[in-house]
Design a protein around this nucleic acid. Structure first.
Length: 479
RNA sequence: UCCUCAGUAGCUCAGUUGGUUAGAGCAUCUGACUGUUAAUCAGAGGGUCACUGGUUCAAGUCCAGUCUGAGGAGCCA
């Protein structure tokens, strides 16, 4: 009867002293042939199991090694030791699964994140990854709760798409055709996709936005939350080939409403984690502080993780236009001393160094930048009255960079068609998209939030590969 | 994809100007110890020096290429 067990989190929280309990979990350490630190993943805190002399024979004692799984029946008692309030005095210990200590890669010692990445199938059993993935779960749950409370419809947009017009990046091809060069070809030498599974060229989605807009034109407000794929050869601590994205899309909504929602959303997620994952966040804060001790003074952050999150919760995001951002950069001492690697002038796409200066040096808080030049933004963004800028907005977060990208969409058919023509996007194939503007078009807006970047921001993990269970990055697809 | 740095025991690292049998801490194993907190103490085992080729009497050490990882850049979320 496995369902009679009590989870360690519950046992440590509730007053069950004196009661007989059944617990199950994995051995973290076994000290003095007497004290087992048992963890079942419900909390970072271990339960201390006390094994009295003579309870087990020598053979069984030897099998209680790091990583082994146990079933323990015993009485919950107040602990005589200092590290914990409650412990379990074992009456029966059953070894559910042995773990050869010589071969088990997780040792009771500190491991580097790089090493743990290589054994990602076991790293959930560490304190750090236990905390990270409980926080990730909480954020995912909070996302649905936030939108559900607001009456948004959760729309599942397709993973496989034939649309190649998003322009959001390189795509992974989806095909059942042979890849050894024997696939049927057209007269011009190109591959004949009429013979392919879908009868046309298909890819993994790079964004659910265009389909999301279709939903918003009926439900008023929808959101998507699903995997997204980019075949970019990006080798950085903040890019993945497979990542999860949240994309709300709202009808009857302008850029101002869009910004308000995004800010409220981010704060809601942070607050949810603060309320529900306090212990995990405190552990992660401590871990981060220890890691930063190794860094030179100027690379350390001014605040701890908890203080950073509290500050974001308690302060309005700074809102500036692109034009104002350029002015701030041009007037900065940093610019005058020629410390920027890339030159600053109106019309450029802001470089990482520029974004970091604005967020980390100038404002020292999340910044929303709006009104980017039309030339550097996507075709669907709404043209402003000046004819030069579009109603785009990016939210830049300290330490992460761009965490949200969004815009008010161009709802005026003629302007949208003109823009597509200018940017050489075929309007015939996108007819389904343009139908939303033909039949009852309304002002609407939306944004995309990279889920892993949000988890990074809340957990303080510096490498995005450490906030997704099994990272897919260039030259890496294990597990 | 570009720039920089790195790859030595299970893990984290040291290894001098190229020169005898490649070291340490932790982990593991053996023993001791019954109120320990990543326990402690004593002892033991453990190496394709990333791979391929080259220079040399001699390569962990020098050179070239390849692979992998990290940091930064670009692209973006």
């Amino acid at each position: 009867m496995f369902n009679k067990r009590i989870k360690i989190k519950e046992l440590l929280q509730t007053e069950v002293i004196g009661q007989e309990v059944t617990v199950m979990g994995w051995v973290r350490t076994f000290r003095n042939n007497q004290f087992i630190a048992l963890n079942d993943g419900s909390t970072n805190n271990n339960l201390q199991i006390v094994v009295e002399l003579g309870l087990l024979d020598d053979d069984t004692l030897k099998r209680i090694s790091t990583g082994a799984s146990l079933k323990v029946i015993g009485h919950a008692v107040a602990s005589l030791g200092k590290g914990q309030k409650i412990e379990v005095k074992a009456k029966l210990i059953e070894i559910l699964g042995d773990s050869d200590a010589e071969k088990y890669p997780l040792q009771p010692k500190k491991h580097s994140l790089e090493f743990l990445r290589e054994i990602a199938h076991l790293r959930f059993r560490t304190n750090t990854f236990g905390a990270v993935f409980r926080v990730r779960h909480a954020l995912a749950f909070a996302i649905h709760q936030f939108f559900n409370q607001k009456g948004f419809v959760y729309l599942h947009t397709p993973i496989i798409t034939a649309s190649d017009a998003e322009g959001a990046g390189e795509m992974f091809k989806v095909t059942t055709l042979p890849i050894d060069g024997t696939a049927d070809k057209n007269e011009d030498g190109s591959i004949n996709y009429k013979e392919d599974f879908f009868g046309k060229s298909t890819n993994l989605t790079v964004s659910g936005q265009l389909e999301g807009e279709l939903g918003a034109m009926a439900f008023s407000e929808i959101y998507t939350f699903g995997p997204t794929f980019r075949a970019e050869n990006s080798n950085t601590a903040r890019h993945l080939a497979e990542f999860w994205m949240i994309e709300p899309e709202m009808a009857f909504c302008d850029i101002e409403d869009n910004m308000n929602l995004a800010e409220e959303f981010i704060k809601y997620l942070i607050q949810y984690a603060m309320d529900n994952n306090r212990e995990d966040l405190e552990f992660l804060a401590q871990r981060l502080a220890e890691e930063e001790k190794q860094l030179p003074q100027d690379k350390r952050s001014e605040w701890g993780l908890i203080e950073k999150l509290e500050f974001v919760l308690n302060n309005a995001f700074e809102r500036i236009t692109y034009t104002q951002a350029i002015t701030i950069l041009l007037e900065s001492n940093h610019y005058k001393k020629k410390k920027f690697q890339y030159d600053v002038q109106w019309g450029i796409d802001l470089q990482s160094e520029h974004e970091r200066y604005l967020v980390e040096k100038h404002f020292k808080k999340p910044v929303i930048v709006t009104g980017y030049p039309a030339a550097i933004k996507a075709f669907y963004m709404r043209m402003n009255d000046d004819g030069k800028t579009v109603a785009a907005m990016d939210i830049l977060a300290p330490g992460i960079g761009e965490i949200v990208g969004g815009s008010q969409r161009e709802e005026r058919l003629e302007k949208l068609e003109q823009r597509m023509k200018d940017m050489h996007i075929p309007t015939e194939e996108m007819s389904w998209y343009l139908d939303t503007r033909r039949f009852g078009t309304v002002p609407h807006a939306g944004f995309g939030l990279g889920f892993e970047r949000m988890v990074q921001f809340v957990s303080g993990m510096t490498n995005i590969r450490d906030v997704i269970a099994f990272a897919r990055t260039p030259k890496n697809c294990e597990f």
